[in-house]
Amino acid sequence: MSITDWFRAREDKRYTPVNGAGPKADVPEGVWTTCDSCKRIIYEGELAASMRVCPYCGHHFPVPAHERIAQLVDEGSLEEFGAGITSSDPLEFVAAKSYVQSVSSAKEKSGLEEAVVTGRATIGGHPVIVAVMDFSFVGASMGSAVGEKITRAFEIAVSERRGIVFAIASGGARMQEGMLSLMQMAKTAAAAKRYRAEGLPYIAVLTNPTTGGVTASFATLADIIFAEPGALVGFAGPRLVEQATRQKLPKDFQSAEFLLDHGLVDDVVARGGLRERVSLVLDYLMRPGGAA
């Protein structure tokens, strides 16, 4: 090792962020993004390196599913399952835009087959099942396919005695699958209930936004609920609440901080510290090696 190499290695170590920055995303050079919150212009590469948190104001941007997984799990530990599960069109739902069209354009845009990615992984060495929802896929709404993948996640975690860590975002039950979507709330809640009986931990990370039928089912049945700063989380969306009540909404209504104030989440955790915090909770709630 030359002196310069040695220096470089030292520099690399010194500048490795404590919580791990996650892998660098493939972003073309020269792409700039305007922060929704502080309106400053951020270089895409910088945003990807900062886990998609605005370096100026701390605003948390949405994270694509696979990037989120890389931020959360031990490097290279993901083994995806249920990747072939995708929506069909049981209601033959055709309105302004057909459901089939919505799904196929979501697939193209996101590179995903469904709004949730599920898999086995380890976090801090603990065997877990992860599920990560991607809002860019039909608003990460829950139809039959998402419901099935989440249900399998709970079932596999039971049979393999794994912890569960879900990073959740959702616009709610998927309207275009009608009652089949609504019933996924009961189905995932039932699977979560069976898991709960096993003495294994379920950690939910609620991200922006998490609303409707997902909030009102498996998402809030977790043992530990964290929310990302500024995330909107609730049952009815703020516009609906405003319409129904004709009242001015309180400041920060349904924000993660609002939920914390009202005793609904365990803590608000910034993305940079999330992996470490989740790992620490798993240390408390899981026995070494996953045996319970």
Binding site: A216, F253, H262, L264
Partner: peptide
């Protein structure tokens, strides 16, 4: 879909009932 209903955890209550 009210302000107080949200403050008191409408989604949490429904989920626990399920």
């Amino acid at each position: 879909p009210g302000i107080e209903a949200e403050q008191r955890g409408q989604a949490w209550a429904i989920a626990e009932s399920l």
